[in-house]
């Protein structure tokens, strides 16, 4: 564990100024949002940024709003705590709110931002599977204007994204939700809180009459170099009624698709087993509907 070394912190007030700064200063810089990942990288991984560009003085990067078409835009600098407690998110995508509530601690969630967390591209990031299951898009600003890609495409590897050095992730956009949307996120970890996901499973189903699955999205965290979709498992569910037996089958398929590694937290074999069990549970939870209380949420994960 190291102490941070001297560095310059710039605080530009526009996206353009921020990108230009990076272009002028050259390689070795880093954007700063909440800092909860960046400071750890400096202290624990020996990462030495030459300079830091703090994005928090740029207006317009925070907040959650419903667009005219029913899609929801979450500004990149919106904190996890804001996502967790946002009435919009709680109402439309409760399991996304829950995935945000699973990140670190209250203190961390008051600093950590949804954009920072995505740009950091940790394979175990809790909100990533929930967002991917919702087919969220990433809005990116660069010196040559804006572009929008699917969030899934943003990730390239552990800690790596497809952003160019001067590009800034400005917002996450979640497409309009169908009235039959039901979802769940299960973080599987030994401790109740303050843990990294050993396995994270998010499911988003479009249910007809609360039964027939018109569309299924399953996204997994911590079991491959980037958060991933379990497409073969999704295919098993589409246009089917989600029964316990089918959920079991989809879980097994998702486990087969996952590509976990063994590390200090868990073996690859166990992670695969937990993908199987927790995918099944997330599917059944989604069909059963949302829990109301924290205790019950905990109980369901359990």
């Amino acid at each position: 564990m190291k102490r941070p070394e001297p560095l310059e912190i710039f605080q530009p007030t526009s996206l353009k100024a921020a990108s230009t700064l990076v272009k002028e200063q050259g390689p070795g810089g880093r954007f700063l949002a909440g800092g909860t990942d960046l400071v750890i990288a400096v202290k624990e991984k020996g990462y030495k940024p030459k300079y830091v560009v703090d994005l928090k003085r740029i207006p317009g990067l925070t907040g959650i709003r419903v667009e005219k078409d029913g899609s929801v835009t979450i500004g990149a600098l919106t904190t996890m705590h804001e996502v967790e407690t946002s009435p919009v998110v709680l109402n439309k995508y409760p399991f996304l709110a829950r995935s945000a509530a699973e990140v670190g601690s209250v203190q961390i969630r008051n600093r950590a931002t949804i954009g920072g967390n995505m740009a950091n591209a940790t394979p175990s990031a809790d909100v990533a599977p929930a967002l991917i299951a919702l087919e969220a898009k990433a809005k990116i600003s660069g010196l040559n204007g804006e572009r929008t890609i699917s969030l899934e495409e943003l990730f390239r590897g552990p800690g790596q994204t497809n952003l160019a050095p001067e590009e800034i992730l400005t917002a996450i956009v979640i497409p309009p939700a169908s009235s039959g949307l039901r979802g769940d996120y299960i973080k599987f970890s030994p401790r109740e809180m303050m843990d990294l996901a050993y396995v994270g499973v998010a499911v988003a189903l479009d249910l007809h009459d609360g039964k027939q699955c018109r569309k299924a999205r399953i996204a997994l965290g911590a079991v491959s170099p980037t958060p991933m979709r379990a497409r073969r498992a999704e295919a098993l569910l589409e246009n089917q009624t989600v029964t316990e037996e089918l959920a079991e089958k989809a879980g097994a398929e998702a486990a087969a698709e996952s590509k976990p590694i063994s590390d200090v937290r868990s073996s690859a074999d166990y992670r695969r087993e937990m993908v199987r069990v927790n995918t099944k549970r997330a599917l059944l939870n989604a069909v059963a509907g949302e829990p109301a209380f924290w205790v019950e949420r905990r109980d369901r994960r359990y």
């Binding site: 564990m1 624990e44 030994p190 401790r191 109740e192 809180m193 303050m194 843990d195 990294l196 200090v264 937290r265 905990r298």
Partner: peptide, 28 residues
């Protein structure tokens, strides 16, 4: 339930932080 200082065969402590050395929290 949780605690274990993981030392690999080369004698290196693999989890020297409160992120991976798990003390119980108030919820546990």
């Amino acid at each position: 339930l949780h605690e274990h200082l993981v030392i690999d065969q080369n004698g290196k402590v693999r989890n020297p932080s409160f992120l991976d050395y798990h003390l119980v929290t108030a919820l546990d």
